[in-house]
Design a protein around this nucleic acid. Structure first.
Lengths: 217, 217
DNA sequence: ACCTGAACACCGTTCAAGT
DNA sequence: ACCTGAACACCGTTCAAGT
């Protein structure tokens, strides 16, 4: 079966020789740099080709259009972010509900705020490419890790864990994204952390399968 | 004082006569229709002018650029949404924390899902215009109403109410927006409602100033 | 296999000329 | 005061010609 890729954002040609690999890499890096330097609206293919040191024709040999370029950049960034959440989640396995609440919030904040300029620069092109799909995919990946550790929680159990984890991730992500785009300061982020903990913790407690019974406090 | 608005180099005009008001209104409506019909990417100024029954020059007499057109449409929609939240909030004054939880979630769902196609169509242009600012402004307005009724809660009190309300609104809005953009079905929305109640309720309980003391359950 | 850049198509925006 | 639409500028994309 021949794979028929109709996806307009998929790369057009795969690099075969070594020099073309270098070309693709240069175009890719140039895209990131131009995006960060001038923003999406002023990010022209001419500028990217210039920056990458190749002709405009070469660019279009590997990427079908301008949007595919940013899509590639964003997809990679989202994957890296999900991977960071995964890494931090591993340490939480078998912990208590309260430990997980704090740990999860921290993991998501950490992941989202590393490369904060990219997170901010992503905002503009996200809607222009099929960003919702990309974000949802990344959120689902991260939610998978979160669901896994929630299942391992030693003092609580949940139904519908995947959805629960997805909502936690999505909610935290969008609150953080808003703060990042608005260039919130350190004290705003500190307050946001407190509120996110309360939100995630309260949510998890409300969604517990078997309630604690009598009040342990 | 010489009227500087007669400067021929200055674009952007306010409608003065009745016919120009009609023109502006027609352009405005055409923008909504074209946006809904073909999406933001294919929404050209030519198409809008055509649909409005005016020339392209007339369009640019009243709107400085394409983005301003969508910004106007979106701003109006966001204002209407905030107003709906306000209306539904009024009924909740003086209620219990549980009543408010359910009522708030319902108010936000209702407001966001009325004109659901516009909410979906908004997604694409939002980042291209200064949408974050608009959304934040609308969220702050809605958060104002929410904060007001939270203050009137008869069995709970909160610190930092405005921020708390803002996070509730923002969190719910982004979860709903994601569901809308992904064309979630009725059962997805039902589950989302349940989870949003748990999240908001849990969050509010965790953020109470004076905890209930002994477990009331 | 890979690269080049002039040429093309399209769209946002302007402005001199109308009523 | 308000409208018109040809013309301009710019940018994404292509393709015939090169190495």
């Amino acid at each position: 079966m021949a794979a028929r890729s109709n996806d307009p954002l998929k790369p057009r040609k795969q690099p075969v020789q070594a020099r073309s690999e270098a070309t693709v890499s240069a175009i890719f890096e140039a895209t990131v740099q131009v995006l960060l330097a001038v923003g999406y609206r002023r990010m022209t293919t001419t500028r990217i080709a210039e920056r990458a040191g190749v002709s405009i024709g070469t660019l279009y040999q590997y990427f079908p259009n301008r949007r595919a370029l940013v899509a590639a950049v964003i997809a990679r960034h989202l994957e890296q972010t999900a991977a960071l959440v995964e890494r931090d989640c591993r340490a939480l396995a078998g912990g208590s509900l309260d430990e997980m609440t704090v740990g999860l919030v921290e993991a998501i904040i950490e992941a989202k705020c590393r490369r904060i300029e990219v997170s901010r620069a992503m905002q503009e092109p996200l809607a222009d490419i099929d960003g919702v799909t990309l974000v949802k995919a990344a959120a689902n990946r991260a939610a998978g890790f979160v669901a896994e550790i929630l299942t391992s929680c030693r003092d609580a159990a949940f139904d519908d864990v995947q959805r629960l984890a997805f909502l936690i991730v999505t909610s935290c992500r969008s609150l953080l994204q808003a703060a990042i785009v608005e260039r919130a300061n350190a004290s705003d982020f500190a307050a946001l952390r407190t509120h996110m903990r309360a939100m995630v913790g309260g949510y998890l407690k409300a969604m517990q399968r078997a309630p604690a019974g009598n009040c342990a406090l």
